[in-house]
C-alpha cells in the first residue's frame, strides 16, 4: 500500500462498485434457491388454489416431516453414506495414483492410457446402465452395496484422474527432484510430497464427487432392488407421483437431502478456497 492517495481513492471506489456488483449478482443467484425454500414451507393446496407466485397464506414445517416419513429418509440416509464415502475414498486414492503416473513419467502407452481415462468419462453414462447391470448380475454383485461402490469408484476415476493429472503437472518438478536426491523412492515421493501438494485439488474434487455420488439416482435404481440397501435419492424420487405431484413435499425432501452436501462443502471449502492466507504468511 505505497501507492499515491489519488489512485487509492479511485481504487476504493472501483472496489466498492465491484462489491456492489458481486453482492447484487449473489442475490440474483439466490432467487430460485430462496423460492425453493419458501415453497418448502407452503402447502400444496395453497399453491393449487392460488397459483405459485401468490403470497403464501400459510407457513408450515409439515412438508419436511412428510418428506422425512413418506420418503423414508431415516431409513435410506445411512445407506447413502455407506455407498458414498467408500466410493469417494477409493476414487480419490486410485485416481491420485494414476494421475501421479501419468503426470510424472513418460512411458510406453502413456498417452493411450490418458486417452482411455478421458474417453471413458465422455460417454453418456446412461447407455452403460443395462450393460453394467448385466455384468453385475453375472458376477453376483447385483443388489449389493458393492455394486454401487465399485461402479461409482470406477466411473469417477476418469474425471478425477484427468483433473489431478493436470493439477500435478503444475507442481514444480524441483521439489520432487530434491526429495529423490534425498533418497526417497517413488512411493514416498508420491505419499509425502505429491499428495500434500495436491490437497486443494483433492478437496475440490472431494466436494464435487461427494455431490455427484450422493445425488446419484439412476445407478441405484438399476443396480439395487432391495429396499434395505437403497440410498436416499430413491426415497426422494418416489415422492414424485405418476400424476399427482406433491410439490412442496418434493422440494422439502430435496432440501433435506442437500444438507450433507452443504456440510461437506462448508467443511472442505477451507482447503481449496481459504483465500491467500498461506501465501500471505509466507510473504
Amino acid at each position: 500500500m505505497t501507492t499515491a492517495t489519488s489512485t487509492n481513492r479511485t481504487g476504493a471506489l472501483q472496489r466498492a462498485m465491484l462489491y456492489v456488483i458481486v453482492y447484487a449478482l449473489t442475490l440474483l443467484w439466490l432467487v430460485p434457491v430462496i423460492t425453493a425454500l419458501i415453497t418448502a414451507l407452503r402447502t400444496n393446496d395453497d399453491i393449487l388454489a392460488r397459483g405459485f407466485w401468490s403470497a403464501p397464506t400459510v407457513f408450515t414445517l409439515n412438508n419436511f416431516v412428510l418428506a422425512w416419513t413418506r420418503g423414508g429418509l431415516a431409513h435410506y440416509l445411512p445407506n447413502s453414506f455407506i455407498i458414498t464415502l467408500p466410493s469417494l475414498v477409493f476414487t480419490l486414492f486410485l485416481s491420485s495414483l494414476a494421475a501421479y503416473a501419468l503426470s510424472r513419467f513418460r512411458f510406453r502407452f502413456d498417452r493411450l492410457i490418458l486417452f482411455i481415462f478421458v474417453a471413458g468419462m465422455m460417454l453418456p453414462f446412461q447407455i452403460l446402465l443395462l450393460p453394467v447391470f448385466r455384468l453385475m448380475n453375472a458376477i453376483g454383485l447385483y443388489n449389493t452395496y458393492w455394486a454401487l461402490i465399485i461402479f461409482h469408484t470406477a466411473f469417477q476415476l476418469g474425471f478425477c484422474t484427468f483433473v489431478l493429472r493436470n493439477y500435478m503437472r503444475t507442481i514444480p518438478g524441483e521439489i520432487l527432484e530434491a526429495a529423490r536426491m534425498d533418497g526417497c523412492n517413488e512411493f514416498r515421493v508420491y505419499r509425502q510430497i505429491m499428495l500434500p501438494l495436491t490437497l486443494p485439488a483433492m478437496a475440490a474434487l472431494a466436494t464435487l464427487e461427494f455431490t455427484w455420488i450422493f445425488n446419484d439416482f439412476l445407478w441405484a435404481l438399476i443396480l439395487i432392488q432391495d429396499d434395505a440397501l437403497k440410498p436416499v435419492t430413491t426415497g426422494l424420487a418416489a415422492l414424485r407421483g405418476q400424476y399427482v405431484m406433491d410439490w412442496t413435499v418434493i422440494v422439502a425432501g430435496s432440501l433435506i437431502a442437500t444438507v450433507p452436501t452443504v456440510l461437506v462443502f462448508l467443511f472442505l471449502q477451507r482447503y481449496f478456497i481459504a483465500g491467500l492466507t498461506l501465501g500471505a504468511t509466507k510473504g
Partner: peptide
C-alpha cells in the same frame, strides 16, 4: 419406486437373478 423410474427399472428387475 417413482412411476417413471419404475417403467425403466422393470427390465432390470425381471431379468435379474
Amino acid at each position: 419406486v417413482a412411476h417413471e423410474d419404475f417403467k425403466q427399472a422393470i427390465r432390470a428387475y425381471l431379468t435379474s437373478s
